[in-house]
Amino acid sequence: MAHTPAARTARPVRSTRRARRARPVRLTRRARQRLAANLALLAVAAAFVVPLLWLVFASLDADADLRVSPPASPTLDNFSAVLTDEITFTPMRNSLLICGSATLMTMVCAALAAYPLSRYRSRFSRPYLLTILFTTCLPITAIMVPVYGLFVQINLIDTLSGTAFFLATSQLPFAVWLMKNFMDGVPVVLEEAAWTDGASWFQSLTRVIVPLMGPGLTVVTIYSFIMMWGNFFVPFMLLLSPEQLPASVSIFTFFGNYGSVAFGELAAFSLLYSTPVLVLYILISRRIGGGFTLSGGVKG
């Protein structure tokens, strides 16, 4: 719109008409395109935001129902109602125990496995990596029935440790794959410096490589944790007793009997349960932007 006057003044000058006109016309088209793109994006965003709005509004509304409506008198009653041992703290503690220990297990195993895969040449490493990449794609959902059967046989069913072991394994192929790629990015020169100073492979791994992989390692760790925190099917299948259920499954106790759901409390609990992953995602989304270069490590 702002360019129309310019286009008008350009018109009378006949000799250079083409050259002068081309520019303002293209700019208006670009502005029009931008406006159309903005409107289309805002329409999509509006459609996507509605369920999220419900979550926020209902959690602050003492008598929330199924529709999105701003609470008449915002209150934190829903939060104080769910912040009890039985409803929130025990499931969240279970989630933290399962996902925390599983993430730790995944990261340690992946870092150890990535080291020889990245540093040594062998006929064996390419097939191994291909198998790893293959398993990252397998639908874990499909093997949960046999996993249940297996866990019954080896007495791991309904144990937090068994669930943590399985979650760790399900995330392991992806972690190994990423970790190997990050490790490839750490120059061997730095490690050789450590070797000449008499460091063993383990020392060079923990003192040189892991610190240099810091940003990448953080991203993989947080990503694994987010995946496990949100996982519903695995704990749903492998844990039975109510006091062991993590938040992803215990949420169904609100949801189970359709008739008398306290929607406000459910929304408040959902928000509490989602907050850790939202915060963690914000942390890594900044890291992804800035921290992936290792060039600072080698000055030559």
Binding site: F48, P51, L52, L55, I226, W229, G230, N231, F232, S248, V249, I251, F252, S270, Y273, S274, V277, L278, Y281
Partner: peptide
């Protein structure tokens, strides 16, 4: 919408 846990 993507980061929220599946069940939520």
């Amino acid at each position: 919408a993507w980061v929220l846990p599946e069940i939520v």
